[in-house]
Design a protein around this nucleic acid. Structure first.
Ligand code: MN
Ligand code: MN
Ligand code: ZN
Ligand code: ZN
Lengths: 144, 144
DNA sequence: AATACTAATGCAACATGATTGCATTTACCA
DNA sequence: TGGTAAATGCAATCATGTTGCATTAGTATT
């Protein structure tokens, strides 16, 4: 579900992470928090024509470093970014949830409410992170 | 574990899928079957300098269509291809196993022996495929 | 074995996304 | 109201993915 926040809260968020409150960053935040699906850089570019794409690239990078968003690859291998739930901090992400990629609308959904079952790896493998991907139809697309 | 096969078996494999037995295809097959990790197109290019990269691109595509190999994205979002286990057929892949990406050697391992636990999706989501990703250290890299 | 037909390849060209360097502008603190 | 470091814009480059088309090579047929 999209998280509702206002400009003041976005400014607080930037301040908390020692990032300057710029127009570009606030617009990126408001767009990403308004959606319930992950956002790719092309998504941002198609809306914010006046912001250079390198700026968007760097905004996404710094937000990821700070633990504000996390990266998810969709079925095409293109990077999408989703707002982190609680548990993500600077250089320390906790995104071990299910990522659902709709094959119809291409939306990438973070299903935070689903925790991953524990996995027993073969001897020698030492896992530091897990992600479960699913593809299929999202609620909207399956209702048609 | 790497699957050992000889040239005659690769030729049979191509014939079985109604593909012409060309040198480029046989070399790609022998390289991919000799490894126990997935192979990216750049991997192939770095070894087979005499084969055009578009040819390699098309070989990978047709092998994937035929169910000989399947695509896995690594942590950087670049496509890697791994030999399919049994259960993959033309236009019908069964690759619902764990993919382990080593953060040190960058190797992508298909852990076919691990079956995925069953997942209950939220209402409305209709999954047609699952993939579980793990990252960390592979046996070789964790032994150092 | 020579021929004919189709698939496969090589090359050029283009598309898209990722990434860096550097000059200029802007946010923010003293 | 400046001064300073951070943020941005722009140019440029690299990597990967993708298509069109002419040429080459595999294979079935004679
Ligand atoms: Mn997520
Ligand atoms: Mn696999
Ligand atoms: Zn959908
Ligand atoms: Zn390793």
């Amino acid at each position: 579900m999209a998280q509702v926040k206002n400009t003041y809260q976005f400014e607080d968020l930037l301040e908390k992470h020692q990032l300057k409150k710029t127009g570009a960053r606030l617009r990126v935040l408001s767009m990403m928090y308004a959606k319930n699906t992950a956002t790719s850089q092309p998504d941002l570019e198609s809306v914010m024509h006046d912001i250079d794409r390198v700026t968007l690239y760097r905004i996404l990078n710094v937000f990821e470093e700070k633990g504000i968003i996390h990266k998810v690859f969709d079925l095409n291998g293109t990077a999408n970014y989703a707002v982190c739930s609680s548990g993500c901090h600077e250089h320390h992400h906790h995104d071990e949830h299910l990522h659902f990629n709709c094959t119809a609308c291409k939306g990438v959904f973070c299903l935070n409410e689903l925790s991953l079952p524990s996995i027993n790896l073969p001897a020698g493998f030492q896992a530091s992170g897990f992600t479960l991907y699913a593809s299929g139809l999202c609620p909207k697309c399956s209702a048609r």
